[in-house]
Computed example of a mutant assay.
Amino acid sequence: MLDLLCFINILEALLIQGSSNKYITASTDTEEQSFPVPKALNTHAEELNLDVLLRKADNLRAKETSKTESFELLDDYKEKFRDEVEFIWRFARAYGDMSELSTNIQEKKHFANIGKTLAEKAVTRAPMNGHCHLWYAVLCGYVSEFEGLQNKVNYGHRFKEHLDKAIQLLPEEPFLYYLNGRYCYAISKLSWIEKKMAATLFGKIPSSTVQEALQNFLKVEDLHPRFSKSNYMYLAKCYIDLKQTKEAMKFCNLAEQLPCVTKEDKMAHEDMKKMCTAFKG
């Protein structure tokens, strides 16, 4: 029966991310010594100041192949800048990257838990910083993959709460609308019986529509044209659901023009091929 409640798997599908002020605490050990932190590729001959460090880490992270190096760079400075909010949320984000990149389940869990703890610290220290809320939401999503049924739902609520706050604080950030679109789309696919069952077990379940999801994905394209292959895929899916075949095909074609950069892109590419084949067939 519980398999029907796809709401609890929203965050697993997203690979991202109660209303009380108490943050959810993961049931797993998050001590850093549980797993060795990858040894830095470079020994930094000179000390970097905070601004230079953050800029360098951001530049490295912009390339999928350099995300590990970005993490290692930040790890080198974790003691020096441990109390700087701009450092903390980036370090949390980097732990999320390491969780996503790892192929070992225990390592993925370990990195996700440390990242969530750091992101929680960032939100507590800077509640009006949208990036802190964004990455807390994302890390909650990563952690939820390893949690039981009840915590998956709790993390779902927490994800949406912090995502909404991040959108309020960073209204021009396309990634936020992409995440919100994914969330709305997943919610929109729940059947009436699934919503009823979920509400009975866990309380009120949020509602959304394909149209709401579409508006979020269109907002992404408006803010950042050619944002990602995945965004085009979801635009196509929304238009298919709305029976607007011409628009759906348009975004299928646009998606084919973008390269596969991330793991998510590769998954989207496979989905797009199936959709395009169905159209042409």
Rank of each mutant, 00 (worst) to 15 (best):
A13M: 10
L14Q: 12
I16D: 03
S34Y: 01
F35S: 10
V37S: 07
N42L: 15
T43A: 14
T43I: 07
H44W: 10
V52A: 11
L54E: 04
R55Y: 11
K56S: 07
N59T: 00
L60F: 14
A62I: 01
E64L: 02
T68A: 02
S70A: 15
E72D: 09
L74R: 01
D83L: 09
F87M: 11
W89V: 04
R90L: 04
F91D: 10
Y95T: 08
S99Y: 08
Q106P: 00
F111D: 02
A112P: 02
L118T: 02
E120H: 10
K121A: 04
A122L: 06
Y136V: 00
Y142G: 00
N154F: 08
N154W: 05
H157W: 14
F159C: 11
K160W: 14
L169W: 13
L170S: 05
P171R: 02
Y178D: 12
R182N: 09
Y183V: 00
Y185E: 07
A186S: 15
I187Y: 01
S188R: 08
S188N: 12
S191H: 00
K195H: 15
A199L: 00
L201P: 06
S208M: 11
V210D: 03
D222Q: 14
K229P: 00
S230D: 13
Y232N: 10
Y234K: 14
A236C: 05
D241W: 06
Q244V: 05
T245I: 13
K246M: 01
E247Q: 15
A248G: 03
A248W: 09
M249N: 13
F251R: 05
N253R: 15
A255D: 03
Q257V: 01
K263D: 09
K263H: 07
E264S: 06
D265H: 08
K266T: 12
K273L: 15
